[in-house]
Design a protein around this nucleic acid. Structure first.
Lengths: 214, 214
DNA sequence: ATTCATATCCTTCAAAAGTAGGAGAGAGCA
DNA sequence: TGCTCTCTCCTACTTTTGAAGGATATGAAT
């Protein structure tokens, strides 16, 4: 019997493209589509597909979160992260969340099919570039340290362009404390200034672009 | 005779999806694909399609640059910018480069077809979100004053997270001069800090997200 | 010829950002 | 009970940023 697939992506163009790719192979059957993480989790609960092709960047519930839920609740369903941008943290995040594969959207049709078949039998599949990143990540001692909840909160405000004094007011703590947090953030992210920290936050999607400067 | 289309996107999945969408309509014929801006320009030179569907974020030559070239050299070819959510703030840049339309990738098949037909006859097409952005940009009473070339250059470096000293070194001018430029930039953009100026630059797509912090 | 915009540089000063090195309170864990 | 982590706050200090108010040179426009 064919491998049962769920496609999760917020862009209908991409979903259609994947359908197209996968229609070429008789061993694969696309049994559903979802346009966000929450829908995906629902679908998996009802239908238990063999493999989920998961976009990481989505509204409602992002792909990493959805992957985490699926992998912890439905161990028989494998997840392949499929994304357009190669982002260091996303690779590590996806793997940590339980994804068995990480592919870029520029993957060719037959590579994709191969990856799905591998995933269905529990084998790990990474696109060459992703694998390289992962290697670098593991080797490199300069992988950003994990921020605490409070630090993340401060970073979010910082990344909205707010001054220390404003952040202090907003969180009802002293400006000194904010400075302490900011210093720790800079140290952990290994960047020299709040501006670079803000750019980092935007890059990893901590703040939506809509909120930038308004 | 059908409308002749060129699809430009660096992801084969997306190209395939678009092909799929457009195959539904007999009035539309996809005559080629390109995976970066440089290829796109080449193709337009050889084949002069009626409409180009252009992704904005690509390697080699980005979509805005390619649009600029195409529109200045081949006036009969219309360009529709087609992007994913994250980039939807490059609206102004795309329009300024000469794009006649701006659509998001979550557009449905028939909307896309409608947009292409409109573009082929020279009509402007914007997705609701893009239109909103544009309106806001135009309406905004505090519409940012125009920056000079030098100021834009400084802003670009600033938006890469560089300090005044670094910018001075890079441009071979004194730090004092950089400070003067930065002050003028903040005044013109009506923001209180370099961090907010950097975020503004990202928002309008002055720096590509790839370059952020890397 | 003169005015205007741009770009360069200066000094002086105030505010904001960051660093260094503490220290106490509370939560959770071995 | 210690131990560690997080969050909070402090003083004292340096560096960076940014504002204010100049000055000079160039080139284009009137």
């Amino acid at each position: 019997m064919p491998i049962r697939i769920l496609i999760v992506d917020d862009h209908s163009v991409v979903r259609q493209g994947l359908q197209m790719f996968l229609a070429l192979d008789p061993d694969i059957e696309v049994i559903g589509e979802a346009s966000n993480g929450a829908e995906a989790v629902e679908f998996v609960k009802d239908e238990q597909p063999d493999v989920v092709l998961m976009d990481l960047l989505m509204p409602i519930m992002d792909g990493i979160e959805a992957t985490k839920v699926i992998r912890s609740d439905f161990a028989d369903t494998e997840v392949i992260a499929l994304t357009s941008v190669l982002e260091d943290n996303a690779v590590v995040g996806a793997i940590r969340a339980g994804a068995i594969g990480y592919l870029l959207k520029d993957t060719e049709a037959d590579d994709l099919v191969r990856a799905i078949k591998a995933a269905a039998s529990g084998q790990v599949q990474l696109s060459p570039k992703a694998a390289e990143r992962l290697m670098r990540e593991i080797r490199a001692p300069e992988s950003p340290e994990k921020l605490t909840d409070r630090e993340t909160e401060v970073l979010r405000l910082l990344a909205e362009g707010k001054a220390n004094k404003e952040i202090a007011r907003e969180l009802s703590i002293s400006e000194t404390t904010v400075k302490t947090h900011v210093s720790n953030i800079l140290m952990k992210l290994n960047v020299p200034s709040r501006t670079q920290a803000a750019l980092y936050a935007v890059r990893i999607g901590l703040v939506s672009e809509d909120s930038l400067g308004e």
